[in-house]
Amino acid sequence: MATDSVSEGAGDSPHTFHNEYNVLSQARDAMCDFMYTHHLSVANPEAVRFRHSGLQLTELNVSQIQYGTSVTVDLEPMEEYYSISLPIAGTQSLTHGDCTTHSDRYRGIVICPNQAVQLTMSGNCRKRLVRICRSALEHQLHKLLGTAVTDPVIFEPAMDAQQGQMASWWRMVKNLEREQKHSVSLFVDGPILAHVEEMLVAGLLYGQRHNYTEELAKVTTITVPIYVRRAQSYIREHARHNLTIESIVAAAGIPKRRLYEGFKRCCGIAPMQYLREVRMTGVRGELLGSRCDDDITTVALRWGFSHLGRFTREYKKRFGELPSATRARCR
């Protein structure tokens, strides 16, 4: 017996899904489609009871998965995703080269792109799995650092989920799951979810050690000057208006050159680039919202994008998909 269903959550976004397969090949194909190419081995194929359910946001996915029997998964290197998992029951272990990391409900594991690894799961293992797009994580790190991310982000594979910052991170993940049960929730509708995703990605970067940790720690000690905060607040409040650099400088109350220097040092971008980021995020939030019936052109114009061809190109470069694909996901 094998069943497969996809359903939407209480709101139009994010989408929730539920897959069930009792056939080994179908379970393998489902996970190949979901995240990675792999070889799946089990001692007793007849015992497979694959269950995978969760919610799909824009840049990340939160789900629960189990096979119903002990499995060994030989993963080929992923290119597009980071995989972060934590058992709810049972155990799992990750082998990368000569290093093996054991995982239970107190200790999670991280699999990074371009790593060939072997994953084993006990027969009673049921785990939470967070899949994060590599492009979203690198973009977030770029925003936090203010400089280009030249090398792949490589996390330590072992994650302390019992105490500390990553324990807090997993509590956020579980709360996001719980909120999907409510018909009305800030964590079900579109605009807020963009901020939730950003918070989860940033939380992973701050909480789990990786090859940029020291560099990130240095940047976070920088105090954002009050004139930069004034300019940021002014931009966010008036992003739909016809803003000029002169009006932003006037709101900040300092010379243009000093404002540019402050933005470059604290944000890594110029004030007008910051405005475009705010506007892009605003458009995406509306397109993901379940209550927005305006067409894409109307939404883009409302946020100050008058050159629609350029807007579409920049949107795809920023989010990895066309505005029409974002809107279609929430229909």
Rank of each mutant, 00 (worst) to 15 (best):
L57G: 07
L57I: 12
T58Y: 12
E59H: 14
E59I: 06
E59K: 11
L60D: 01
L60M: 13
L60G: 01
L60K: 04
N61I: 15
V62D: 00
V62W: 01
V62Q: 01
S63H: 08
S63A: 14
I65R: 04
I65D: 07
I65T: 14
I65G: 05
I65N: 08
Q66W: 12
Y67A: 07
Y67Q: 06
Y67S: 09
G68P: 05
G68C: 13
G68F: 11
T69N: 07
T69M: 10
T69L: 10
T69D: 06
S70R: 12
S70L: 08
S70H: 13
V71L: 07
V71P: 02
T72G: 07
T72S: 09
T72M: 09
T72R: 12
V73A: 03
V73E: 04
D74A: 07
L75W: 07
L75F: 08
E76V: 07
E76A: 10
E76P: 06
E76W: 12
P77A: 08
P77T: 12
P77D: 06
P77I: 14
P77G: 04
M78Y: 05
M78V: 11
M78L: 13
M78E: 09
E79P: 06
E79W: 13
E79S: 14
E79F: 12
E79A: 12
E80T: 07
Y81E: 08
Y82L: 02
Y82G: 02
S83Y: 04
S83D: 05
S83M: 09
S83W: 03
I84Y: 05
I84T: 03
I84C: 05
S85P: 07
L86M: 05
L86E: 00
P87K: 03
P87C: 07
I88M: 07
I88E: 11
I88S: 08
A89D: 13
A89T: 15
A89L: 13
G90F: 02
T91R: 06
T91Q: 10
T91D: 05
T91A: 07
Q92D: 04
S93D: 11
S93G: 11
S93A: 15
S93R: 14
L94F: 09
T95M: 14
T95E: 11
T95P: 09
T95A: 15
T95F: 08
T95G: 09
H96D: 11
G97S: 12
G97F: 13
D98T: 15
C99N: 15
C99Y: 15
T100K: 11
T100S: 09
T100M: 11
T100L: 14
T101P: 03
T101G: 05
T101K: 03
H102A: 15
H102Y: 15
H102R: 15
S103T: 05
S103L: 03
S103H: 03
D104G: 01
D104T: 04
R105M: 08
R105C: 05
Y106I: 04
Y106T: 06
R107V: 00
R107Y: 01
R107E: 01
G108D: 00
G108P: 00
G108M: 00
I109D: 00
V110S: 01
V110N: 00
V110Y: 00
V110H: 00
V110T: 04
I111T: 02
C112Q: 05
P113W: 06
N114G: 10
N114M: 15
N114C: 10
Q115D: 10
Q115Y: 08
Q115E: 13
A116D: 02
